[in-house]
Design a protein around this nucleic acid. Structure first.
Lengths: 142, 142
DNA sequence: TCATAAATTAAAATGATTCTAAACTATTGA
DNA sequence: TCAATAGTTTAGAATCATTTTAATTTATGA
């Protein structure tokens, strides 16, 4: 029996890949484990690449980028645009919002169900909402 | 007397620069006119650079970047993070939100006063809100 | 007008990300 | 089981927005 520092995931990395029709290669399975076995969290390509290296997974940075985008296209990840210097990916794909700690460049989820937004104007003709993002930018002056 | 295609601005480009203590150089005055004489709008560095060229203003792209950042630091502009491929600057610096047309990569302002957000969790200890951004992402499938 | 600090610039550098083309590997059907 | 092949991975080059550098130019105040 394997040991996990977190509770056993509802779906294994392999099952997730199968479910979205992505061929379960060594790299994709390893990255999926790093992404989905811990609880919800946010990564950048560089960060995931370093994590992979630190646990001995051999994967190139190009593959990390490819994989993050494939997972995003497949709905396993969500891209969060908060910082013009790099792209964040969120393993929580349910509708929700974010605190963004500007100093540390860290994201924290805000439950989407709890938040209620009123007074928005009508959506322009011919357009439809693909997503609503609320970002609360926070500064922590030590 | 000069001719404007828009109504006369409340403050001239020169006055704005003086007000924030930026030396009114030829380039800064010219860019300020392009930015503040039309009504509220959004630009990227590349776009402003092209506009400048098209009206015969001689300015380098480096200066456009410098100027956009100086204006932002001075509170004359606001940076809008919506797109991971480039940075948008908004001449509307009052609290407000945005529609983002994903196909066209265009921004449209949403009046901030009209929008009411409820149910947000308490701000984490030691942090304070520097800004709340609401972005409604829209797709227009032709 | 002059001295000087500030601003501008072309060009090089950077850094995140994407592309390319060659080498590998999972899958499928015989 | 095995080869064919379509899909993957990869190192390295390329790209693109942006920033930096270091030299030149300009605004300002005495």
């Amino acid at each position: 029996m394997e040991h996990h520092s977190q509770t056993r995931p509802a779906f294994s990395a392999l099952e997730r890949l199968r479910a979205v029709g992505l061929r379960p290669t060594r790299q994709r399975v390893a990255l999926a484990k790093l992404l989905f076995e811990p609880g919800d969290h946010h990564v950048t390509a560089e960060l995931l690449f370093e994590q992979a290296q630190s646990v001995g997974v051999k994967v190139s940075l190009a593959t990390v980028y490819n994989t993050l985008h494939q997972f995003t296209a497949a709905g396993l990840l969500r891209e969060v645009v908060v910082d013009s210097t790099c792209t964040y990916f969120d393993t929580n794909v349910t509708g929700h919002h974010h605190f963004f700690f500007e100093n540390r460049r860290a994201l924290v989820d805000i439950d989407g169900a709890a938040v209620d937004i009123r007074g928005l104007p009508a959506v322009p003709d011919g357009a439809k909402i693909s997503r609503v993002d609320v970002i609360i930018r926070l500064s922590e002056d030590k």
